[in-house]
Every structure is written in structure tokens, then in C-alpha cells.
Simulated assay, not measured.
Amino acid sequence: MKFFVRSGRPLEGVLTYDESEHGFSFSAQSSSALTERLGTEGVTSLLIGTLQLEVDIESQDVLFAWGYLPNIRRKTAALGTPDYSPGQVSISTDYSLEPGVSLDVPGENWEVLFDPASGWVAILRKKTVRAELVQVASGIVLGLTNGDLVSIWLLPVPQGSRDEQN
């Protein structure tokens, strides 16, 4: 599985983390904004453990991240704010993409870090070197090196802030 950066706008929306459910969810700013990104073949997910990257099957574009990621897996670290560019990320795989049938992202030794000062959560492959960071959706940044996914950066809105944004 390879990942490719294309120019484009990130999907606008709100990324939240529900402490009681131990999971992330993403809500597109509008249903029409999401519909514009979806083809007619449905969606599937790429898995990193229980965290999922939603992918449009027709375009093979990564849309957003969501899924279970309990706090107990987080290690506190000073991450700061990553230096990223807006864009879109597409995948290429030898496997057939089917609605509802998830694929594992190649790679092992993923580490979850949390920066309480900035609010960023980073899911990183251990021993990751520099990566090109691309914001694919509000609060969701993917890190790529030589076509491999090496990091996911998530910035959920603080609990209680979501209602204020809608």
C-alpha cells in the first residue's frame, strides 16, 4: 500500500474525542461537502490498530480519521504544532477495496503520544524520520515518507466546544 499527496482542500468539519467512549469521531461541516468527495462505490477503512482512516473507494482518497483509541495508550510528550500543508492523500494498493471491508496499514511499532499543552495526539511509527505532513481534514494530518504512512496527527476540539462551532 502506497500513499500519494495531491493538491486540494482539506475536508472541513469537526474532529472530537469522546473520553467516555475512548474514541475519535469526525463530522463533516456539511453533508454536501462530504458528498462532493464521495464516489458511487462506497467507503472502506484503513486500520492502524483500532483507529480508522475512512477512504472513498472510487477516488481512493483518505477522507478523515475516526475510531477507538483509549487514553491509557497515550504517552505524554511535548509535540507542539506540526508544520503541515493542506492537500489530499490518495492510496494505491494491490488489494481490491470493498465497502465495509477494512485493510491494515502496513507497518508495526506504532506509538501514541499526547501533548496536553497543544492538544495534539500523534500516532507515530517508532524510529520515524522526517515526513511530509498533509492536512486532509480539519484536525487531521497525515505524515508520509517515500509513499509510506508514518504518522497521523489529530487535533480534536475540546469537549463542549463542538456545540459552539455548529
Rank of each mutant, 00 (worst) to 15 (best):
R6V: 13
S7A: 06
S7Q: 13
G8M: 03
G8T: 06
G8F: 11
R9N: 13
R9G: 05
P10H: 06
P10E: 11
P10Q: 05
P10K: 08
L11V: 10
L11K: 12
L11G: 11
G13L: 08
G13E: 05
L15H: 09
L15A: 12
Y17D: 04
E19G: 10
E21I: 07
G23C: 06
G23R: 04
F24T: 03
S25D: 15
F26A: 03
A28N: 02
Q29A: 06
S31L: 02
S32V: 06
A33Q: 13
E36H: 01
G39W: 15
G42F: 12
T44Q: 03
S45K: 01
L46I: 11
G49T: 00
G49A: 01
G49S: 00
L51M: 07
L53C: 02
L53Q: 05
L53M: 09
V55Q: 05
I57N: 14
E58N: 15
D61A: 15
D61N: 15
V62E: 15
L63F: 09
F64E: 07
F64S: 09
F64M: 10
W66H: 04
W66K: 10
G67Y: 01
Y68E: 13
G80Q: 13
G80C: 11
T81R: 12
T81G: 03
P82L: 09
P82D: 07
D83S: 05
Y84K: 08
P86V: 09
P86F: 03
Q88D: 14
Q88V: 15
S90V: 11
S90K: 15
S90N: 15
S92T: 07
S92C: 06
T93I: 10
T93G: 13
Y95L: 08
S96C: 09
V101T: 13
S102P: 06
S102D: 01
S102K: 00
L103P: 05
D104H: 02
N109E: 12
N109H: 07
L113A: 05
L113D: 07
F114I: 07
D115E: 14
D115L: 08
P116D: 11
A117I: 06
A117F: 07
S118H: 12
W120I: 08
V121T: 15
K127Q: 04
K127E: 08
R130W: 07
R130F: 11
A131M: 05
L133A: 01
Q135A: 13
S138F: 10
S138A: 11
G139D: 13
G139I: 08
G139V: 14
V141E: 01
V141D: 00
L142T: 02
L142E: 01
G147E: 14
G147W: 12
G147D: 11
D148S: 07
L149K: 05
L149Q: 10
L149V: 13
V150K: 08
V150L: 05
W153L: 02
P156Y: 00
Q159F: 09
Q159T: 13
R162P: 05
D163E: 12
E164C: 09
N166E: 14
N166Y: 11
